[in-house]
Design a protein around this nucleic acid. Structure first.
Lengths: 224, 224
DNA sequence: GGTGTTCTCCCCCGCCCGGGGGAGAACATG
DNA sequence: CATGTTCTCCCCCGGGCGGGGGAGAACACC
């Protein structure tokens, strides 16, 4: 435990120099390298194994988002965490950035104390966003239905449950589904109940929302 | 502009006293009141018009989540923003709490500097979460793919019908919508019936399908 | 044989929802 | 003033749905 090892990624040398100077005097944090673009960053992460990467977004050759995706890919198994630095919080790419696997999202004009805190929190496995980004994220999150069951894709559904699922997300009632599959309505209700449990939702409306939000609506899979 | 006015809500007098002392010496922040439970808090917000409320979760008579929902209801039009304080970040109610309309979510063991920063950020219209909560939120958010398409064809809907529509397509029940819009359930049912007629559908499931298929699921439809 | 899963269907209950009607108040428009 | 629209809320009713349980048959696996 000889401190938090950070890698600085930015295409502007002056920005890299500035960031390096921010962390120079701080105890327990050591800058182990700098990369001028995303492609180099991915390579340098493999080589240097830093704990935290400070990642710019706009860069030549490969941008920071793609680089972050690669660094955070499970295959990479690097343990490295990424803080994305940007100049714009109104950017429509904020949400995309949050899906890359990054642990932090800060504005470049954040005070140095925030940068320091972010590095320490992220190294400890936590996460930190700029307040304005937090506000946008909460706003976005609040309008989503509560589908708080992690990772439950359709893989755990049995064949029959999948049959019912397909018809349900088309807007059919239990009665209609029973008729189409030539089943008793009780049987359909039984399968539907299991769907709720496995998908972690409350009612058929939320099943439909779940399906759309997870890109599971594939018209090729659905009967006429 | 004589400073940020805050209201402290907690059922434990010692906690209230502690919070009050935290903000006592800080410039530009003044504690204008204390409330021992949610019901009183809602009343005190109407009376005192604070800028920021520090809200405990577990309280008698009315808990902090319901109180926050009411304070943040659009009809209330208070401009007051709420920071929720809790002892548990592993609580499964974290996500629910984020849907109440709160602007912040902090652990009670946060350092006083964080509490101060949170009050100032939230008063400025931003938002702030504890790092561990941020991590959970990002994790939850990252699992969701997102569609964004410009919409149309909602022009026949009245303002109020559109309000109901927005909440309906998020998977909320009539009862929930009534609570959120501070209406009678009968009124919501009435609007919902009109939605069915105008959109030419049979039930709420088909409203959701209609919305997705026509690219009407767009965050611009929802309050910022 | 025992265990487990899946598929089928049944009972119960309570509530939410769909569907019909009406009605008063506010407001704009003519 | 009359008309129309919107928003609010009420009544009624029946049926669909959510949620709990149980149970038998077929099949696979060990």
């Amino acid at each position: 435990m000889d401190g938090i090892r950070i890698l600085i990624v930015d295409d502007q040398p002056l920005v890299r120099r500035g960031l390096r100077s921010v962390f120079e005097g701080l105890p327990g944090i050591v800058t182990v390298g700098e990369s001028p673009d995303g492609l180099d960053a991915v390579r340098d992460v493999r080589r240097l194994r830093p704990d935290v990467v400070l990642m710019d977004v706009n860069m030549p050759r490969m941008d920071g988002l793609e680089a972050t995706r690669r660094i955070c890919a499970p295959e990479e198994n690097s343990g490295t965490r990424v803080i994305i630095l940007t100049m714009y919080d109104r950017d429509e790419h904020v949400f995309e950035a949050l899906r890359t696997g990054a642990s932090g999202f800060l504005l470049k004009d954040s005070p140095t104390s925030t940068l320091e805190q972010a590095v320490r929190e992220v190294a400890a496995g936590e996460a930190l966003l700029s307040p304005s980004v937090t506000r946008r994220l909460i706003g976005e999150f609040a309008r989503r239905p509560s589908l708080s069951t992690p990772g439950a894709e359709l893989s755990h559904l049995t064949d029959r449950e999948l049959d019912v699922f397909r018809l349900l997300v088309c807007g059919h009632s239990n009665q209609e589904i029973a008729r189409m599959l030539v089943l008793g309505e009780s049987t359909v209700k039984s399968h539907v109940q299991h769907l709720y449990q496995k998908l972690g939702v409350r009612d058929r409306v939320q099943v439909v929302i779940y399906a759309y939000e997870n890109g599971l609506i594939d018209r090729r899979l659905l009967p006429a």
